[in-house]
Design a protein around this nucleic acid. Sequence first.
DNA 1: CATGAATGAGACTTCATTCAT
DNA 2: CATGAATGAAGTCTCATTCAT
Lengths: 200, 200, 200, 200
Amino acid sequence: MQQNIREPKQKRAIEKKECLINAAFELFNEKGFYNTNSKEIAKKAGVSTGLFYNYFKDKSDIFLEILNRISHKRYLKTEKFLDKLSKENDKRKVLKSFFIENIKLLSELAFIYKDIETIKKEYKEIGKYNDKNKQYIKKLMMDLFNKINSKENIENLDIKCEIIMTTIDANYILISKIENQDDKVKFIDEIVCLIHDYMF
Amino acid sequence: MQQNIREPKQKRAIEKKECLINAAFELFNEKGFYNTNSKEIAKKAGVSTGLFYNYFKDKSDIFLEILNRISHKRYLKTEKFLDKLSKENDKRKVLKSFFIENIKLLSELAFIYKDIETIKKEYKEIGKYNDKNKQYIKKLMMDLFNKINSKENIENLDIKCEIIMTTIDANYILISKIENQDDKVKFIDEIVCLIHDYMF
Amino acid sequence: MQQNIREPKQKRAIEKKECLINAAFELFNEKGFYNTNSKEIAKKAGVSTGLFYNYFKDKSDIFLEILNRISHKRYLKTEKFLDKLSKENDKRKVLKSFFIENIKLLSELAFIYKDIETIKKEYKEIGKYNDKNKQYIKKLMMDLFNKINSKENIENLDIKCEIIMTTIDANYILISKIENQDDKVKFIDEIVCLIHDYMF
Amino acid sequence: MQQNIREPKQKRAIEKKECLINAAFELFNEKGFYNTNSKEIAKKAGVSTGLFYNYFKDKSDIFLEILNRISHKRYLKTEKFLDKLSKENDKRKVLKSFFIENIKLLSELAFIYKDIETIKKEYKEIGKYNDKNKQYIKKLMMDLFNKINSKENIENLDIKCEIIMTTIDANYILISKIENQDDKVKFIDEIVCLIHDYMF
DNA sequence: CATGAATGAGACTTCATTCAT
DNA sequence: CATGAATGAAGTCTCATTCAT
């Protein structure tokens, strides 16, 4: 029988699902998707292996759940920025803080960029979902740039946004590995500079 | 008993080792390190499973071998550029072609960037090796920039090079997925533009 | 602690037990004993999984309950026939309708014949119970034949009855799969004919 | 990767595949398909669990292999009878020995009739295969009857053959359980009698 | 009585690696 | 050198059953 994935109703149950998600998140981050197994996730979450499969179809399913949550956060943050932008005069300052925020946010996505290209090959669902997310964020980003440079049409804006996203994402992994706080700040400044120079 | 890894001496044997490396390369690229198994590699190479372990200690070992070869190519190419640079006046033109070449070369490294962050956690050897490579390439790149802007000292050159490398690497995966040839060219142009603007 | 199996006393509770039995019956019939799980039965019955174990010791226990009910029906039907037989002159006509009735009744037992041979190996209880049932029905059937052919002693009557029972049981599965109503009737006629010819 | 099921080439390997099939056959017969697991089969065959999956896709695959072999035997035997029939005058004697032979042969199929109805629901492949077999055997049987009663057209021959097959199959399980040899002979006689009377 | 979350043993399956030939 | 059959540990997943609420 195709076991239904239940949506926990009791409070304690919801907490356990959260524990599983948190445990999975940490382990994926630490050791990668392919070096983490469901038993391990359950153990770290303090629940039994079986419970894992009460809440998630398989390992890719909990991955998707995490991806989903982080993406949602990213949407919200990006939308908030767009709003702020329309009320603020110094567009570039806003843009800069937008980049900074994004880089920070991406710390939570680092592990995904370790494995997602491979996972996508195995689980088409995740590939589709991830692409959809990306398109949506890109759309928001394009709106942002259009608002700033409202009069002139930016050439290749689509490609530019794609590249910016890729570049931001990739560089986070770099930044996340830097221990020294001063170096971290320098890196972030440089990346903001890179993107800013590129766009204007 | 720890089976010794032999270095094939006969011509036919050397060819078989090559076949294994090529097969592994294609499969890693296509499906990722973790979704490729040794039996599959041997099959694609047209040899027996056992032979795989005559030439490689384990799966990470053939990965390392591939990494090694590609890195070596990258060294050579970078060194050749440095040489060309010292004989050419239009430094920026050279730089541009350097970027283009690099992006092309990275097509061969795409698969590595899919999995290496995770593999590094599992096989420390590979992590160290990869970091060493990266440092070496960065060193070459720094020399390059120093030659061009010989008079003025570029601030944060170390960080800049790190970021450029990361950015190039990340964007290749993007480019490698584009089917349409015109779009591909546009993307490459944009990335060269991004890096060029950033550096000068 | 061995949870005691309660006999439900309240009306609503009795209904729930009925729902479980009906659900189990349908699922066993549809997918077989080994491909049906207790959670599924509870879900189809519209009750919780836990309740299942309030009323039944384990999965074999609900199977036994179903077996019991159907067997009981079969007893009653057979006994009624014996009674009718003693008041009717055209014995063969009665016998024929007896066969027809039996074949119909067996529709409810089809699922049992799918799995019972295997279940018996695992749950000795059920094996014993089923054999006891069979003996009892056979006894009734033998009485029936003896009444009809009261004067002459039928040779191998025991074996004959055993074979008839087996044959009827097996052929029902066949009949139950036939969609076309006319074909169904033809099949039933043929089986009645087979058994009738055999006995007289 | 979809692991290819290899066809063993070395002699020793072929023997091991045979061992697995024999072990599976015995266990299925003894405890039924659903109470037998792959580890157990491997153990009884004296090989490792992994080897099971070198030769068979899953448990249903080895079941299919066994089904296939027995069906093949049945074809051969039935064809031989058809041949004998055309050269022999006392058709009924041949027919009788045909039934006897069939009943004997079916001893090897007993376990299949324990589980196949349920297995068919789970593995459509096996259902299709089994139905195809059945149709083929029925066809042979119909030819047989047509040869015997060449002049007159037997009414409902299709249905009759279906019923005979079902009846023979079902009764074997009965016969296979009888310990006493005399009783066994009596049972076989009775079943031959049942079928003979039915057909002529 | 009723719920459904939780358990964990055990089945299914894969695959890196070894080894007899 | 080369083969590919064989191994078995480890991962994936299911489900009968229990138990706190």
